[in-house]
Simulated assay, not measured.
Amino acid sequence: MTEPTPITRRTVVQLGGATAAGAGALLLAACTPAGSGQGSGDAGGSGGSATVELSSIPVGGAVSASLGSTPIVVSQPSAGEVVAFSAVCTHQGCTVAPQGKEFDCPCHGSKFDAATGDVLNGPARDPLKKLKAAVSGGTVTVTE
């Protein structure tokens, strides 16, 4: 059995640069919500479409759904009027949830208007990303 090579300060410094870079990349990846466009509320370029039954969306309320792997919220501010937004909070990328006429972020308390996506209460400063929503018969189709 051979004796282990002692770790010198030079070895630590030489390895430290590579290790620190790798650790930094891991930390950045862990802090950036997947599909959130770096926390900007971007729907993540998922493409495609999502469908929701109009009858499942309460008038004056909203429901959660998914557009690909991106969480979205679809609301019906008045009968037959439908709007959709990315459910990714623009503060730090948590997923907002419908609460009556607003969307609430469980992480830091931001609140957004369910009809406009505008910030009602921070710390978020930017509105939710608006998506395209079209009603055909009893079905709502949401796209980016």
Rank of each mutant, 00 (worst) to 15 (best):
I72G: 00
A97I: 08
L15E: 03
A87V: 04
E102C: 12
T32I: 09
D118P: 00
T2W: 03
G93D: 05
S40Q: 08
A84R: 01
G35L: 05
L120C: 04
A133G: 08
V63C: 06
T2I: 10
H91G: 08
A23D: 09
A20H: 01
G100N: 09
G45K: 09
I7T: 13
V82S: 07
T95K: 15
C105Y: 02
L67C: 12
V13P: 01
P127H: 10
Q92G: 15
G45I: 00
G48W: 13
D113N: 14
A133V: 04
G80W: 09
S55V: 09
Q76A: 02
A133C: 13
T141K: 14
V88P: 00
T8S: 14
S36D: 02
V142P: 01
P123W: 01
P123I: 00
S110L: 03
A21I: 10
F85Q: 06
C94S: 10
S75I: 06
P58G: 07
T51P: 02
H91I: 02
F85R: 05
Q38R: 09
V83T: 09
P77K: 15
E102N: 09
V140M: 14
A124Q: 01
K130H: 11
E3L: 13
S64T: 11
N121P: 00
S136V: 03
L67A: 05
C105H: 00
T116W: 06
S136K: 11
E102R: 14
A115H: 08
A97K: 15
S40V: 05
E144I: 11
P123Y: 05
V83L: 05
V73N: 03
P71V: 12
G22E: 06
E81W: 00
G35M: 04
L27S: 11
A84C: 09
V12W: 06
Q99P: 00
A34Y: 10
T143G: 08
G48T: 05
S75G: 11
G37I: 01
L15F: 12
G117Y: 01
D118Q: 08
A18G: 15
P127F: 10
Q92E: 13
V119C: 11
L15Y: 09
G60D: 05
T8W: 00
G16C: 07
C107R: 03
A134V: 10
S36V: 01
K130L: 07
C89E: 03
S75H: 04
V13A: 14
A79P: 03
T116A: 03
G22I: 08
A43C: 07
G48Q: 08
L131V: 06
G17R: 07
A50V: 04
A79G: 12
A62E: 02
G61E: 09
R125Y: 05
K130V: 07
A87H: 07
T141L: 10
A115K: 11
T51A: 11
A124K: 03
M1N: 12
L15R: 14
G80R: 11
V88W: 04
V140C: 02
V59H: 15
V63R: 13
P33K: 03
D104G: 09
A50Q: 08
T90F: 14
P98F: 05
E81L: 10
G44P: 03
A30V: 11
K129E: 12
R125Q: 12
V63Y: 07
